[in-house]
Write a protein that binds this DNA or RNA. Structure first.
Length: 650
DNA sequence: GTACAGCGCGCG
DNA sequence: AAAGCGCGCGCTGTAC
């Protein structure tokens, strides 16, 4: 196949697309891949001004370019893309299916995924890497030139479009870190300044620009031939994985489409309060000669780290420096250090910490939610972003929302939020993987009826360790400490670092670890006997029960156990989400958070839903039960139990 | 001006 | 004995 056999059918804004669609059908054998792709104005899906600028449908030889603002064009796309005669493909299909569903081309997100093979998913499975192809990104253009060689056409088309962009003096194409909102600010009253369509190439390209036409067409040609090459190959290699990864990608796309309701009023109030705190701390810090400069993109006045360190030194407190990765000395001003300076009497350390926290809430959370001007937050949920396979949330990340910010996100009217999480899944998986007898016993041996508190605590590994270290009078706080140290150690933490993190002596840290190793010896033994030798023998890879492949950098062997445990926990959550869907909760799911799923259900059905969710999610791994805790959170995303609890345990 | 690495911080 | 694990986001500083 050569480039000159390709036909681009640009259907003008007011032209009828029937003839073009006929030509496209004639170029396809039933069962062959038809590719679809869209271009947008690069606004965020949470933004009501988000718009599709072009719809492209094509085979490897014919591409039809449709106008998303014309109802006849939409109808033609709808007819073709819902015709079961063809199989469909797209690269990172969720992006396109989300918008096409909003446009009414697909009735539902699920319908869009029904016959779609996503070339991004195929590549992920094939190269077993996270979003990278060697050192190049795992994008359509790179992948097509690698897998389809000289047939790839989209690289040239992109370069031509970049030239146009230069003449326009706008940004967006080829700008790695660019996003349309980089100059959008939200003032302390919550007023959004700036329009994300200004200076934005994607929002301003005319549909009939020849370079844009070529660019749009190139993508579908590439996509169609890439799928024809990859789909049979990857399906033959890992048929179940191809199905499962498409399934979870579709569910993630449905969650992105659904979004989470934003309580704009509450968010505005929180935002303005945080802005006030930030401004007050700035004034106080300036009185201590801390200097502030305006950050380039956000416009936020940010203190210079050096002046903060100097101000703390002026209070008579030592602020050490450490060598950074570039060989430069940096003042140590992290959370732990600031806590220490504060304890030594520094006022500046406390003020700076408070400024940092208020600023973080504003720029990372409230600002993000408010600047798109929408009433819902549509985060992009990536189904297997992480090397471990864990799902990730982007723009914004809803998996790292601080407790103080969570109440900005709420249930729809008449609904309540429910959270269901696996109880200590990492420890249970560790027990199942390593076969530690004592640890397995704790999770498998049924509790006697009318169990005492003592008997309940005997089922908790951290109490066993706490008793070993502090004796039978160990407190709740002792147990908490043991938990932090033990989990940190499972991740590979050294005694010194772990102890310093929780402000205890290395001696006590060592005692806790000794207690842990004595109580559950098999965990470390398993790593030393099963994983480490294998990695050192040059085989730093393994396959999980799901058939998912993992590999570890051999110089970081100690990270392997954690990768495996996180990966297994991810696959357990995947299975739970599939069962939830089968049980009818597909419309209720809002967000996965690693070992937890957030739902919204009609308030009247909350109790019944809890029982059903619990039943659906509960599972076991190698005979170790994976238990599930379900909580009704109410109308806002907030931990009820945390609110009810007294400030500190006596 | 843009790109990239490093840091710091939230969540699990 | 020593090594903390996985993410995303915003900022800073260096290199180009």
């Amino acid at each position: 196949m050569t480039k000159n056999t390709r036909t681009v059918l640009f259907v003008r804004d007011d032209e009828n697309p029937t003839e073009a669609m006929k030509t496209l059908r004639a170029s396809l054998i039933p069962g062959e891949f038809a590719a679809f792709d869209i271009e947008t104005n690069a606004l965020h899906p949470s933004d009501p001004r988000d718009a599709v600028t072009s719809i492209q449908i094509g085979s490897a030889t014919v591409a039809v370019l449709l106008n998303p603002n014309n109802t006849a064009h939409i109808a033609a796309a709808r007819e073709f893309l819902n015709d079961p005669v063809y199989r469909l493909t797209a690269h990172n299909a969720g992006f396109d299916i989300l918008r096409l569903t909003r446009l009414g081309v697909f009735d539902t997100v699920k319908a869009g995924w029904e016959r779609t093979s996503d070339t991004f998913i195929l590549l992920m499975l094939l190269v077993q890497r996270n979003g990278k192809f060697g050192n190049a990104p795992l994008d359509l253009k790179t992948a097509t030139s690698v897998w389809c060689g000289a047939d790839a056409v989209s690289k040239d088309a992109k370069e031509a479009l970049v030239k146009v962009q230069k003449e326009m003096g706008t940004k967006g194409i080829g700008g790695g870190s660019w996003n349309a909102y980089e100059n959008i600010t939200v003032d302390e009253h919550g007023v959004v300044h700036g329009d994300p369509r200004e200076g934005n190439t994607w929002a301003q390209l005319p549909r009939d620009l020849p370079e844009f036409i070529n660019y749009c067409a190139a993508d579908v040609f590439d996509s169609a031939q890439l799928a024809a090459t990859l789909d049979p190959m990857v399906r033959e290699l890992w048929p179940e994985r191809v199905e499962a990864e498409h399934h979870i990608s579709r569910m993630c796309c449905e969650m992105t489409h659904r979004g989470v309701k934003l309580d704009r009023g509450h968010t505005l109030a929180q935002h303005s309060e945080a802005c006030t705190v930030r401004a007050e701390r700035q004034r106080s810090l300036e009185a201590y000669n801390v200097t502030f400069a305006q950050a380039k993109s956000s416009g936020v006045f940010t203190p210079s780290r050096e002046s903060v360190a100097e101000a703390i030194r002026a209070e008579g407190i030592d602020v050490p420096r450490k060598l950074d990765g570039n060989g430069k000395m940096q003042d140590v001003l992290d959370k732990k250090a600031l806590k220490k300076y504060k304890a030594e009497g520094s006022v500046v350390a406390q003020l700076f910490r408070e400024w940092t926290l208020a600023n973080r809430d504003v720029v990372t959370y409230y600002n993000h939610y408010l600047r798109t001007t929408g009433e819902r937050v549509h985060a992009e949920i990536a189904a297997s972003e992480a090397v471990t396979g864990r799902m990730a949330s982007k723009s914004p990340n809803l998996q790292n929302v601080p407790e103080t910010v969570k109440p900005c996100l709420v249930a729809d009217d008449g609904f309540v939020l429910i959270s269901a999480d696996f109880s200590s899944v990492e420890m249970r998986v560790a027990a199942a993987v390593t076969g530690d007898k004592r640890l397995t016993w704790m999770y498998t041996e049924p509790l006697p009826e009318n169990a005492t508190e003592r008997e309940e605590r005997e089922r908790d590994p951290y109490w066993l360790i706490a008793w070993r270290v502090w004796g039978p009078d160990a407190t709740v706080d002792d147990r908490k400490l043991a938990k932090i140290i033990v989990l940190g150690s499972m991740y590979g933490g050294g005694t010194e670092a772990l102890s310093a993190n929780v402000d205890i002596s290395p001696d006590l840290g060592q005692q806790i670890l000794n207690g842990y190793r004595a109580e559950f010896p098999q965990l470390k033994l398993w790593f030393d006997r099963m994983m480490k030798p294998r990695i050192e023998a040059g085989r730093p890879f393994w396959m999980l029960d799901s058939g998912r492949f993992q590999s570890i950098d051999p110089t970081r062997a100690w990270a392997g156990l954690n990768m495996m445990i996180q990966g297994l926990a991810r696959d357990l959550l995947l299975g739970a989400m599939f069962r939830l869907e089968a049980a009818g909760f597909s419309d209720a799911m809002l967000l996965p958070v690693h070992d937890e799923v957030l739902f919204q259900v009609p308030a009247a059905e909350a109790d019944a839903a809890c029982a059903s969710i619990q039943k659906s999610m509960q599972t076991s791994y190698n005979d170790v039960p994976i238990e599930v805790e379900v909580k009704v959170l109410g109308t806002a995303w907030t931990e009820k139990t945390a609110l009810a609890k007294p400030a500190t345990a006596a």
